[in-house]
Every structure is written in C-alpha cells, then in structure tokens.
C-alpha cells in the first residue's frame, strides 16, 4: 500500500509527543512490531527535538514540518525546519557531540537515528534550515526478500 501524511506545528516542546503519537498511529496501519514502533517514535522525537532546540533555539513561533510516507513496508520520514542550520553536519553526527553541553544534551540524537533507521540523510544550510530524511524497511518485508 501507499500512503502519505504531512503535519506542521509550532516549535514548542509540547509538540514532541504529538509528533511521536501522530507518526505511530499513521504507521500502525502496516502493523509494525512493538520494537519497530518504539524505534520510529524515538527517531521522530530526536529529530523534532533537534529542530526545536538547535534549529530554532527555543523560539516558539516557528514551524516544524513532519512528513511520513508508507511505500509497501518501507517507512519514510522527513522532518524539516527553517532555523539556523548546522555549520558542520559531519561533526553533529559524531556520537556524544553536542553544541549545547550546558543544557545537559547527551549528543546521542543522530547516533540514535542512524542506529534505529536503515538510512539517514541530513541536509542543512546555515541560516536556511535543516531537513532530516530517514527510511526504514519493516522486518516482515526483509524476511520475504531473503
């Protein structure tokens, strides 16, 4: 099956759980396992949190855009902000790297996304914003391919 959704919400931390729940209920139509569901909720939480605290630096009046697509048993998620952007994407992807240690950030966000998803692509332009594009194939399809 093929399906798509897009939502846009203000850059406030209350919307982190909204984003997780929206994606979880959208993908429930292709019956992911509990582990897959947790993985997806976690990566959505990471990317939306990044948009709010790093992209928009806690400015509550900005917009975060979240798209999710289902292609057969592949899930595709895009999280986009028009915030300050990332100066050095390679550095940001390093485990434990954080630009905000004083905020008790663990620096594990991108590492978690890379571990829980099959594919993570980050495009960012300083001053223009950041787009995180992620893909994951659900296990039942993998089993069929083997």
């Amino acid at each position: 099956m093929r399906n798509e959704m897009t939502i846009e919400f203000l850059s406030i931390s209350e919307n982190e759980s909204l984003a997780r729940v929206a994606v979880a209920s959208f993908i429930s139509q292709i019956n992911p396992t509990m582990e897959e569901l947790t993985d997806i909720k976690t990566v959505v939480s990471e990317a939306v949190t990044n948009a709010i605290i790093h992209g928009y630096e806690d400015n509550p009046d900005q917009k975060v855009r979240l798209s999710c697509a289902i292609n057969g048993e592949e899930i595709e998620i895009t999280i986009q902000d028009e915030g300050r952007g990332i100066d050095n994407v390679d550095m940001a992807r390093e485990p434990l790297y954080t630009s905000k240690p004083e905020w008790e950030r663990s620096g594990m966000g991108f590492t978690i996304m890379e571990n829980f998803m099959d594919h993570v692509e980050i495009t960012s332009e300083p001053g223009e914003g950041t787009t995180v594009h992620m893909k994951k194939q659900l296990t039942s399809t993998r089993a069929l391919c083997n």
């Binding site: 909720k41 976690t42 990471e46 949190t49 008790e104 950030r105 663990s106 594990m108």
Partner: peptide
Amino acid sequence: TFMDSSGLGVMLG
C-alpha cells in the same frame, strides 16, 4: 514507557 536522548542527558547529569 518511552525515553529519548534528552532522558539520557538528565540521567548523565
């Protein structure tokens, strides 16, 4: 029931 890297930050702190 759910935790992300923000929770790891609090624990580590």
